[in-house]
Nucleic acid binder design. Structure first.
Lengths: 349, 349
DNA sequence: ATGCTGATAGCAAGCGCTTTCTACTGGGCA
DNA sequence: TGCCCAGTAGAAAGCGCTTGCTATCAGCAT
């Protein structure tokens, strides 16, 4: 069968304890002995038994990364970056960082958390907006607290802070600020009739971006008609398409459209195009996040760039304790307004 | 500290053995006893210790899914589908399926495989094209064989079959056939000067799609000039942009461009546009895979649709043994030609 | 010389669970 | 009335590793 520590020990003519120490490298072992052990490991093709090791040591080298939708590059980029950062760690025993896709389902989120708790994960990174549902938030909070109790490090990335002190670090995106700046840009161009294609009502991200939008409108004295010009949908392209049509129906004179994210924005562009409207000639369109393809769209999309890769990588380092937590445990990650070709002054200024 | 099986047993006034049997549900336990145990589990907020359980049972409930680039929806969709399929399993003890992003690095691929072996994973799904490097292929093959020996089920998804019998099932994409049909479509439209933006030389996927392209050209007696009209790059948009420019430089009279995948195709479109060429007016462009945004591109992309979601979900079921392996262990997944607006007859027929 | 010290190595006790084997129970049947 | 069996529950032996403590030993100061 598979070789065990004892087999290696026998072959190297040392005790199992010594082999374990060589493998974990935290106890002095004479160079000659070490070499002998390493040779035996190699000859036997020995691979540590993770479960046994985790059981004995009461810790594991699993790091879980929770995402809402892995098919969405927004999450793919963050998760990939976190995994890369974790994989780069040198010195310590190699961590196994794994991505868990909740598909946006609250139950699956909880299930994954339980599964990770069961594995006694070393750390878990939770990415993306939270659900608004207080009951679910409480459940997640409780789960995270239990995990933290058991020694698991918790990092939130692109998610609003959680009350309590179980979270090691939070990297929160400044969705409000970004949303506000985006709409200010549009107002600055002269737009007055601005529609908003929002994300799903049940996510915090949706609300925050929308709040930024509202703030900009209010500051310009344009908030009156806000509600009539907001349509909610999901975070996909199809939803953007439909919502754009709906907004146009409600208010044919719309001169600009702000979308919950880039994917939705591109869907909206498609709808406008199909209606014979040009972007930005007839209607300006703006997105959020700045995914790689947004710069290539036609026209190139004005959007708020979120440093997904950097945030993901940082989350990975924080999860490993390679980087000190920000003061207060919370760092706000700001977006940068990227003005491109999809927004312009409205035709009839 | 955290509650253990023994705590639950004490509380329910039964032996640990009984608790274990209730939790694993494979041994008769009287309904009343079961109920009492379940209540105790609930009251103590007990969560099984995975490592201990895996150690004792010599199996784990971890399923690993290896992908080359999780930021690419090609992988995101497959991996997400596999995870969804695995998460849907009812009855058995909940599996923890996890995605591991190799970033295309051979070493990381091997590292992840070792890490999964260390965890005594129940199954591993390897997605996406393999590296051409024989040494690396052999190393992966050997690793998979060892995993299989240890009882891990192996499923390849979107990857060419491997010699030997360690692989439980292989879902191979018909990249050659798809590539061939795509180019035939172009030839059928009247194109004769067709450029090809290939993927990285080191991946099997690249070669297979290119072989299909070549086959179509040969059948039409057009293979002569093939080599001069192929440029290799990576699988990203940028690479498509650059390659398109290079092809145009080599052969300004090009009337069509086939790309290694949709992302690359869109990059190529951008390049053409920047050069003042219209698609498909001046140059037709075709992709491969049919990612969600390809249908929305302007113009909508002609491509070969690969059923990523279905394949991923099936791979998940195969990994769990929920579905019988295809005869011979290998199933070929065919692509479907999606003719859209980005291809048309060349201007000067 | 003699004891002390730092550097290594081994012993053995678990970590929390699964599972084989054994033990007990009551009812059905002869 | 006594025996056997199906149905349940428990005892206990590990699974393969980590780690606190102890043991050994060479070198060195005294």
């Amino acid at each position: 069968m598979t070789a065990t520590l004892a087999d290696v020990a026998a072959r190297a003519q040392v005790s199992p304890a010594t082999v374990s120490r060589v493998l974990n490298g935290n106890y002095p072992v004479a160079a000659a002995t070490r070499e002998r052990v390493l040779r035996a490991v190699d000859e036997l093709d020995y691979v540590l038994n993770g479960p046994a090791s985790s059981l004995a040591a009461a810790t594991s080298d699993l790091v879980g990364i929770l995402v809402n939708d892995i098919a969405d590059p927004f999450f793919g980029i963050m998760a990939g970056a976190a995994q890369a950062a974790i994989g780069e760690e040198r010195g310590a025993r190699e961590k196994l960082s794994v991505i868990c896709n909740t598909g946006g389902s609250p139950e699956r989120e909880l299930t994954y958390l339980t599964l990770l708790q069961r594995q006694r994960a070393a750390a878990v990174i939770v990415t993306g907006g939270a659900l608004e549902d207080p009951a679910h938030q409480a459940a997640v909070g409780a789960k995270l607290a239990r995990l933290a109790d058991a020694g698991t490090r918790i990092v939130l990335c692109g998610r609003p802070p959680l009350p309590g002190d179980s979270v090691t670090a939070t990297l929160a995106f400044d969705n409000r600020g970004g949303g506000r700046r985006l709409t200010e840009h549009l107002i600055g161009l002269g737009h007055r009739r601005i529609g908003y294609v929002a994300g799903p009502t049940e996510r915090t991200t949706t609300r925050h971006r929308l709040e930024g939008h509202r703030a900009a409108l209010e500051a310009a004295g344009l908030a009156r008609t806000l509600d009539a010009r907001v349509v909610h949908g999901s975070y996909d392209r199809r939803s953007g398409y439909d919502a754009a049509l709906e907004l146009l129906r409600r208010e044919p004179e719309l001169t600009a459209l702000v979308a919950a994210n880039d994917t939705v924005a591109l869907g909206a562009c498609a709808a406008l195009r199909d209606r014979g409207l040009s972007v930005p000639g007839d209607v300006s369109v703006a997105g959020f996040v700045d995914l790689p393809f947004s710069a290539d769209a036609v026209p190139a999309l004005t959007t708020v760039r979120l440093p997904l890769y950097e945030a993901g990588a940082r989350a990975g380092r924080l999860a490993l304790g390679l980087e000190p937590a920000p003061p207060g445990g919370i760092a706000t990650v700001h977006g940068e307004l990227m003005v491109r070709a999809s927004t312009a002054a409205p035709r009839a200024l």
